[in-house]
């Protein structure tokens, strides 16, 4: 089972990101589960959401305490101690930041990949919403879900928002794919049919 925790601020589409990632994993043939760290959502307040991806049905309902990966939508949240706590040994942190990955890795002593997700989103979507760019990067880095599954999940989630919004997101995903070190966090066990 792969466990992922997504940190962001209210209004950044944190829960939506978790839902899209779990949907993509299910499209990929996995079992998956996504849920928010339940709270009163307020714009700007730190929030978290959880994703579990597994080959067997996911039975547990507890919060993710020892994630394999963190997806952090706001770099400032890396300063909040609770954000990185519990990260599994060898786990990766994907963060929305324009700083170099090496600098953030050295700062935290952890394996960090930085992506200027908000900037990329601003360019394609006209809004600095980092979530879909980070998901595209996560897919490319880990290989847990492929581009097709993520695209299908986006289609399902953005259904009703119009073809234009979908195409803008797909264009954004293509740019992200070309800009992250594909397969850096790939492990054989992540392949759907391994």
């Amino acid at each position: 089972m792969i466990e992922i925790r997504i940190h962001g601020r209210g209004g950044q589409g944190n829960v939506v990101a978790a839902y899209i990632l779990a949907t993509a994993a299910i499209e990929q043939g996995f079992h998956a589960q996504a849920f928010p760290s339940f709270g009163a959502e307020r714009r700007g307040a730190p929030v978290a959401a959880f994703v579990r991806i597994a080959r067997e049905p996911v039975l547990r309902r507890s919060q993710v305490l020892h994630p394999h990966f963190l997806i952090v939508q706001d770099r400032a949240l890396l300063q909040v101690p609770e954000v990185t706590v519990g990260l599994s040994a060898g786990g990766g942190i994907l963060v929305n930041s324009s700083k170099p990955s090496a600098q953030l890795s050295a700062l935290l002593g952890l394996d960090v990949v930085a992506l200027p997700a908000a900037q990329i989103a601003l360019k394609h979507l006209g809004r600095p919403l980092p979530n879909t760019a980070l998901l595209a990067a996560f897919a490319a880095l880990t290989g847990i879900v492929d581009g097709g599954a993520l695209e299908q999940a986006l289609r399902l989630r953005l259904h009703g928002k119009g073809e234009k919004v979908l195409q803008a997101n797909l264009e954004l995903m293509r740019e992200v794919n070309a800009s992250v070190p594909a397969g850096q966090w790939y492990r054989e066990e992540y392949a759907a049919n391994a």
Binding site: I26, H31, A32, A34, F35, P36, F38
Partner: peptide, 12 residues
């Protein structure tokens, strides 16, 4: 149905 734990959880 447990609130949040089930109502707000996405799954197949």
């Amino acid at each position: 149905v447990d609130g949040f734990t089930l109502t707000h959880t996405l799954e197949p």
